[in-house]
Structure formats: structure tokens, C-alpha cells
Amino acid sequence: MNEPWQAKLDPRTRAAVDEGGPGGRLDVLVALHEPLTAAVRHQLQTAGLTLMSGDGTVVAGHVPDVSALKRLAALAAVRRLESSRPLFGEGGGGKE
């Protein structure tokens, strides 16, 4: 964690960047210092982020591969970057 951009990543994302994997598209959440503006949107897209949500200080998106994460985290507008976390349903079948 010598570089400032590394501190913006959550540990799993840091591991992915350090280890160069996994390959392929990654869904991420990006926290911004201020609500998304057109200028910042352009910066994010230029860094490789395809947005899946449109406003606020936390936006969802995906990058084509892990190499884009470093570019995203290096942006001054980006406060934190968190890779996708699976969620699990909290109900199921069973006998009464």
C-alpha cells in the first residue's frame, strides 16, 4: 500500500490488482468525493468504467479487466473503490 491509489481499494480489489486477476469483466462500486458530474462521468468512462447507475456519490459500473482498476483509483475524484460482493437470499423452504 505504498501508492495513494492503493489505499482507495478494498482488500479483495487490491489482491486482484496485485495478482493480475481474475480475467474478464469486473463489477465495481465507486465512491466519489462529490455527487457525479458530467466531467467526472467522462473521467470515469475514459478510465474504463461503464456506468450501471447514474448519480450520487456512489455509482455502480463495470470494467473490462483488472487493469482498469488502477486507472480508476488514481482519479482524484474517486474516494474508494470496492469490488463486487455476492449477496445471498435469506429465506428458503422448510417444514413447518
Binding site: 462500486l29 450501471m52 437470499g89
Partner: peptide, 21 residues
Amino acid sequence: ALDTDGVSLGSSPRVVAALDY
């Protein structure tokens, strides 16, 4: 409708996108 693999049910970015939708 989130994607599910029979084990997990969606992911944090997909839910954020869903909330905005």
C-alpha cells in the same frame, strides 16, 4: 430480478444499479 447462480442472489453493484432504477 437479480442474477442468481442457485447459491448467491445478486451482488452489491447490481443492487445499487437496481436501487437507482
